[in-house]
């Protein structure tokens, strides 16, 4: 019997399921905020570019 090896992989598997479930919920919630922020900043950049072009003599 490899009880130390079995215990190690048992703990690793448990940690994987707990960490992965938690991270999935966290990323699903916070990722939406990140996407909205990113698209907002890119849109603002486009508007700034257009304004700069319009102001050129």
């Amino acid at each position: 019997m490899n009880s130390a090896g079995q215990l190690f992989w048992c703990l690793i598997t448990l940690a994987c399921l707990v960490w992965y479930s938690t991270m999935t919920f966290l990323v699903a919630y916070r990722g939406v905020v990140d996407i909205r922020g990113m698209l907002g900043r890119l849109r603002q950049g486009q508007l700034d570019d257009e304004a700069a072009r319009a102001n050129q003599p």
């Binding site: 991270m23 966290l26 990323v27 916070r30 990722g31 905020v33 990140d34 996407i35 922020g37 990113m38 900043r41 890119l42 950049g45």
Partner: peptide
């Protein structure tokens, strides 16, 4: 630059995903 690196606007949780 937007096409290749998203205008370098990627934040933490979007980066993890």
């Amino acid at each position: 630059e937007t096409f290749l690196v998203a205008g370098r606007e990627m934040n933490l949780y979007l980066g993890i995903a």
